[in-house]
Design a protein around this nucleic acid. Structure first.
Lengths: 350, 350
DNA sequence: ATGAAAGCGCTAACAT
DNA sequence: ATGTTAGCGCTTTCAT
């Protein structure tokens, strides 16, 4: 029984594990067939006696055989790899997209090469070259905002799907959350719990999402025969703007009974100020956020009702479309993924 | 001059770009040498006339030649790729580590294969096999907490570096932030601005970091001839625990003049309650957080003085060590990266 | 200093 | 139904 003093030997033993990876020839030999036959057996190709196929598969398993991707790639010109290009440092939004994509791609034997261009076009070009040199089968392009980015599709010889951050070319394939429908969900929820004087606090005007979410809400309110209460407010995507907006609302429309905020940050800021002003949430004013950003949502007092963009699903769908495109079934245009309402105590008492 | 109606043709032209990648043979032909010579010229190997080398390099550039990684990989058994394995969904801590690693690896011609095991051991094993099948040259293993995780090193035939989340085998190479020194920084800062009654609010007891940060603070206070004020408090990594802790402090040690919190979340919770209780920050009580998590730090009122763990650097250093190990210069043991103090208004007036 | 040739591990066409 | 062979793009001896 080895004790501590043998650790060096143990290390050798372990590294011996890696002696040499079993190769197709090994498998063929062991199964008593030729390489060609072994290859066919393993790939389910050609005409083989079932028993032969079995024998080869068994041999492969015993040897722990895994085909060399390098060799396969050399032959096929493919790499069974997709490049995930994020235009700016991986952030709150790109992560779930990435994870969703990974979920789907992992099942398809595809690996993800990660490249974060840090909002730097030069760096982006560099990465693109690197990825192309590595023969990636396709690209998923993502970013930190839902406004369009310059298209890359025309300059790439492989399929590209934009996820979350769409391409500015409407013919490219982009998968994005449905901000408009998200706004509708929020509006409906508020009217359905009897609110009638509903204000809106958005992010910056230059963000399309600020407008779409308002528009969605407005649509929902119209169905209940009402209008947004007071002027919609626009500012920064910050808690501090949420706080400031709440002050404005308290002055301009003190009779409001609900606020829909275009982000959870804003909603939290709004809640803080309302609460400190003695307004009870949700009794006096109901608050709905956007993003379902768990840190915000749970730290807010009370926890926020919010809209979830299903970013994971956005990533999954994008990855699925990419696989399709790689398989020769391209698609194009803008595809939206529905948002979901998540109800918590900021609109409905526990 | 093409106008919009030619877009289809333009598209063809563009896709023609991808006709066929220039190969080494093309370069050799163009330079009027053999493949072997061209290869040597491009790799700076062998004995070549300078002029020949130049000619080849020029030809390669004109053709936009990039050596096929597949072919190279087939020959060398290496893939010029490292696997980045995160044990749980990419989070706040693993992202900067990953970006730091990417920064360093990108310069070394290395690409990153991303695998997120979602805290699932089965999934982790699956990914490890996939990555090994792809002949990754090494692994960077990371996670969401700074406590040790089970070692993978012995079961992997390639070098492994643990970043942020260390291995439970002290002989493995792990790179982690220096929590102890971070605590010292916080303690020194508080004593240096004249505080003497300094309380501590930690995270869960089961997190080593909770203790290390306290220990660091205590060391610093001892140098100033004082002790932590009141009993150190431990709870969850949540704002709500920060709020609760502040209530406790207000009761148990109302004369405190500073609080060091083991995370920015806690610090924010503490600030909220103190402020609402009419305590002025930093006049009455100075507050120091930990993480330099920008969302928290900037949303807190006032913005938080905090300790930055330099996670990006942790990632960079880990990647550097991995490259060294791959190059045959392995290292081992636990390496700590110093934290930095970031001063904001929660301790020092603007 | 340069060229020729072998071979990395695999698949696909062709032959049997 | 199975075996044989050529070749993917590159590097590396070994000749010259």
């Amino acid at each position: 029984m080895p004790d501590r003093t043998h650790s060096a030997n143990e290390a050798e033993t372990v590294s011996a594990m890696s002696e040499r990876r079993a190769t197709l020839v090994d498998v063929a030999q062991r199964a008593g067939v030729s390489r060609g036959t072994a290859s066919k057996a393993l790939n389910g190709a050609g005409q083989l006696r079932a028993s032969t196929r079995q024998r080869v598969i068994a041999a492969a398993e015993e040897l722990g055989f895994e085909a060399s991707p390098a060799a396969r790639s050399l032959l096929s010109g493919r790499s069974y790899t997709v490049g995930l290009l994020t235009s700016d440092s991986l952030g709150r939004f790109s992560i779930p997209v990435l994870l969703g994509a990974e979920d789907l791609l992992a099942t398809g034997e595809m690996a993800i090469l990660l490249c974060d261009a840090r909002a730097d076009r030069i760096r982006e070009q560099h990465y693109i070259r690197t990825l192309l040199a590595r023969q990636v089968d396709g690209f998923i392009v993502t970013g930190h905002r839902s406004d369009a980015r310059p298209s890359l599709t025309a300059s790439l010889p492989v399929p590209v799907v934009y996820a979350y951050t769409p391409s500015d070319n409407p013919n490219d394939l982009s998968v994005v959350p449905d901000d408009l429908q998200g706004g509708v969900l929020a509006g409906h929820h508020l009217t359905s719990i009897g609110r009638r004087r509903i204000a809106y606090v958005g992010g910056p005007q230059r963000y399309h999402a600020s407008h779409l979410r308002l528009q969605g809400m407005t649509t929902a309110l119209e169905q209940a025969g009402i209008q947004p209460h007071g002027e919609p407010l626009f500012g920064e995507w910050r808690e501090s703007w949420g706080r400031q907006a709440a002050q404005i609302l308290l002055k301009s429309v003190p009779d409001l009974d609900a606020v829909f905020c275009a982000s959870d940050h804003l909603a939290r800021g709004v809640c803080d100020v309302l609460r400190e002003a003695g307004v009870s949430i949700p009794d006096d004013v109901a608050v709905v956020g956007f993003d379902n950003y768990s840190e915000m949502v749970m730290a807010a007092r009370p926890p926020l009702t919010t809209i979830d963009m299903n970013l994971r699903k956005v990533g999954e769908i994008a990855a699925g479309h990419l696989l399709d495109a790689i398989a020769g079934r391209p698609r194009s245009g803008l595809e939206t993924v529905p948002c979901e309402l998540v109800i918590r105590e900021s609109t409905v008492k526990d």
